[in-house]
Write a protein that binds this DNA or RNA. Structure first.
Lengths: 344, 344
DNA sequence: ATTAGCACTCTCATTTAACGAGTGCTAACT
DNA sequence: AGTTAGCACTCGTTAAATGAGAGTGCTAAT
């Protein structure tokens, strides 16, 4: 375990590096942070911290920069959460003040807010359909036996899908099955609906065709939607002025699949999660950090939002931002889910 | 008018600059293009072309680069369209070979294709709702008098909108009005529907509430959807290694409104349109060129697609690409529109 | 244990010089 | 008269040289 002095010096180095982006030297620390120590002492201490793996040298005779381990310790033990300024809070609340009826508006707005306030890249993963609650299904027959299905979830998400039925189904038959579904399955999690379809519907007298149809309606390509805003903010950071590296990072940010994969990893704990550099376990974004939180509807977590930016991120502020935003989004979505019950 | 020699030399300069991105000198031209002229002669000629405004000097003792006027002349009179290789054609057709039922899939696919083949940035503006044909409307009552409207166009575009009705409307009333709309207005351009609503519906005995409701359904925020792919390809070009300028270009590319504005300008002519540098009449993208074409459904133009890239673009190839892609997209959408007639 | 002092290292910015591509002009050539 | 060769000149690019500055690590003194 680090002693008090080491902690304070590590904290000072990380803090200074985060704000200046310049490798920090002992003299600098001695001047800016009143630790009551001379540069020489600090130097010794920093050498120790380096040996312990918390700091690194870009080269001899340059200051130190934190390693991932250093950032990790800072985030876990040293940093104190820096509340958003009341102005920032106001700004966020204002963005959500006007009525939004559609989930995708809320997603757009949220990624925008996260990017705007953090000056990094904001992201939000749309509510996972699997975890959503079923509310209503509407079917419209199209030509050639194709059917447009409109699925409404408890959170107000509307999902359209066009289905090719092999055989044209009579209108009455559809009505019948539709009523059954809407009567019996309302408020069930979508995940459970497929089970129901397998169990109930198959046993009953309904034809295989209808079973297949329903199966198709409640199956969707797993491609969860990811909203990203403010990618250019990455270019703002001095460490990315070198183009070659920057380009590969942009490429990674264009690959939604990659980010979705990283984001959907099971969350070990409640609240805000911080992934630093290599901890993302993904080469392409190993120079970036990720601050995320789940957001929920009626207390049930349905999606993930957060900020992605340079390793040298203002964690103390971003953690607050992500936390705050997640709470607001949860509220907004929960409200929406209450007013989106199907009528009659 | 330029004489034959000037044309050939201008063509050579533009071509060479497009392929190498290096200001081109007389010696270079003399060697690579067999014009049967000595460097000195070419020099004189280039000096003339400069005076006429077709070429420019970055500085004395550097080669020439084309001006916008130079590119324009090249595109209009010199360039010969370079057909896509059969491999490229195959590649494109393959991308469209699997069944796509939803417009947005087609849009995603198309912007992707344009970016992939051109190595610049691909873009497509989704079909303009105003110009679309109405096919079917579906209404679902939600709690609190809110109504989910589902609008299906002839091209298979499905548009959801949640409407807040001030007063709860009885189900029968909705059914009634819905039948009227679907019976009478099918196959009308959406633009005309609003007129119909104003004229017919108002005169009849329907309440003001219903009129307002319909009005809301057929009114949408003009925000047309723009699909963009391959923005990073911009970084690929040597002229953008300077960051400050690049950043502002990226910012411009993030601003969809800006691009939508430029794209939706009325097209003067049929076929592929090329806008070079300043011709875009937009400061932020004055270093870029735009190659666009309309695409259509059943012969009626409904949207715009194209490629945006450096002024020094391979026009001869990109023009072919955009032309070809527009034709394919038109076919795909027209097919889709035929199979998306509402049943019964 | 802490600190002051000092030699040493390494980067970065600046200067300097050489280089070379390209021009523009003139005079010779066909 | 148009074309070409020759040549001086310009200017940007690149590489090497230089010096300043920041920072370290070690040693010896406090």
């Amino acid at each position: 375990m680090l002693d008090e002095r080491k902690k304070r010096i590590l904290g000072a180095v990380v803090h200074n590096y985060i704000t200046t982006a310049v490798p920090v030297g002992s003299r600098n620390i001695a001047k800016k942070y009143k630790l009551g120590l001379s540069p020489a002492t600090i130097r010794n201490c920093m050498a120790d911290l380096e040996e312990l793996g918390y700091l690194a040298h870009p080269h001899t005779s340059a200051g130190r920069i934190p390693t991932d381990k250093g950032y990790r310790f800072y985030v876990d033990s040293l940093m104190e959460q820096e509340d958003l300024s009341s102005e920032e809070k106001r700004k966020i609340e204002k963005e959500y003040s006007h009525k939004m009826n559609r989930i995708d508006e809320i997603m757009e707005e949220t990624s925008q807010v996260l990017s705007l306030i953090s000056h990094y890249t904001g992201l939000i993963l749309a509510p996972n359909l699997e975890k959503s609650i079923f509310h209503h299904l509407e079917l419209v027959s199209l030509e050639n036996g194709r059917i447009l299905s409109i699925l409404i979830t408890g959170s107000g998400l509307v999902k359209n899908k066009i289905i090719e039925a092999e055989e044209i189904l009579p209108e009455e038959r559809l009505e019948e099955i539709l009523d059954l579904i809407n009567d019996r399955l309302s408020n069930l999690p979508l995940k459970r609906i497929k089970e129901f379809i397998s169990d109930q519907l198959k046993i009953k007298t309904y034809s295989v065709k209808i079973w297949e149809l329903m199966n198709q309606i409640f199956t969707w390509d797993g491609a969860e939607e990811l909203y990203l805003r403010g990618r250019i903010n990455i270019l703002e950071q001095p460490e990315f002025k070198d183009l070659t590296r920057t380009k590969s990072i942009f490429q990674a940010l264009e690959e939604k699949r990659l980010l979705v994969e990283v984001l959907s990893r099971p969350t070990p704990s409640e609240g805000v999660r911080v992934l630093i550099g290599k901890e993302t376990r993904c080469r392409k974004i190993r120079d970036l950090s990720l601050v995320t939180s789940t957001y929920s509807i009626n207390g049930r977590p349905v999606g993930i939002l957060g900020v992605i930016g340079p390793r040298r991120m203002e964690y103390s502020k971003v953690v607050s931002l992500v936390d705050f935003t997640a709470k607001i989004v949860s509220e907004v979505l929960t409200d929406l889910s209450h007013t989106t019950k199907v009528y009659g």
